[in-house]
Amino acid sequence: MVLLQVLINGLFLGGVYALISLGLTLIFGVIRVINFAHGEILMISMYASFFCFSVLGLNPYLSLIIVIPGMFLVGVLVDQVIIRPIRNAPSYMQIFATVGLSVVLINLALVFFSGDYRSINLAFAKQVVHMGDIGISLSRLIVFISAIAVAWLVWLFLDRTDMGKQIRAIAQDRDAARLMGINPNKIYMITFGIGSAMVGLAGGLIMPLYYVFPSVGAYFVLTAFVVVVLGGLGNMVGALLGGLIIGVIDSLSGYYLDPALKEMVYFLVFLGVLLFKPSGLMGMIGAEEMGLK
């Protein structure tokens, strides 16, 4: 029974990781840029949700209607201002630019909001439904269901809509897609926006569960890197699966080993994957040259 509880906790936690990783992997798959500032977009969305609650009194689930479009705009802005000029530059320049952005955002948050840990006190977040011996946290269940729903919706969007097809075309062959009359800049901008909106959703949903502080993004995004590499960079299904796996590993090693070592366990998993199957669970060899799948 304990094992089942630990597994459920792990899966729900995995939902959080998956939700954050989906945006990262979408952006990488299409734009071929690893956004090292992805965690900071999570941080911004958590602060946005926090202030919506504490200043405007908005329920964090309600404030998603502000946070999600807001993060879409932030993503568009980041893409147009920082990524666009160096889109065709060697990858190290994109690494430096997004790392620089991450440093700026973390420390701006420190300047404006100080290093205090803040949280929302929401009665709903603490509600647990008991089914026999198993307790299920409703707010975590929401995150879990959202992760699966978002992965499904994004898949539908990419598969069915015109815009989605354009995005996939660009991801597969930039030049050929351009010859078909697709404007790559527009597609990149929108993809970056969608990826950021996805992490915005994650931020809003986890705000009732976690503290927010300037470097909270770094904590989550490192896990997200592990998740997307495990799943195969650029692979949406892989990100979902990887997120859930890492969640379960996290939960198991926290319970059976030592909570202080749980991150180490999945970092070791990460290095193991890099060593033995660098393409990840669902990816292909040389994933960095591959696109969205």
Partner: peptide
């Protein structure tokens, strides 16, 4: 040995993770 076989940003990610593991240790 494992990480330098990775290209570009993958190597960067791996090194980032190693430093993180050592910090935890």
């Amino acid at each position: 040995y494992p990480c330098l076989r990775l290209k570009g940003p993958f190597f960067t990610l791996a090194t980032l993770a190693v430093a993180e593991v050592l910090q935890l240790l």
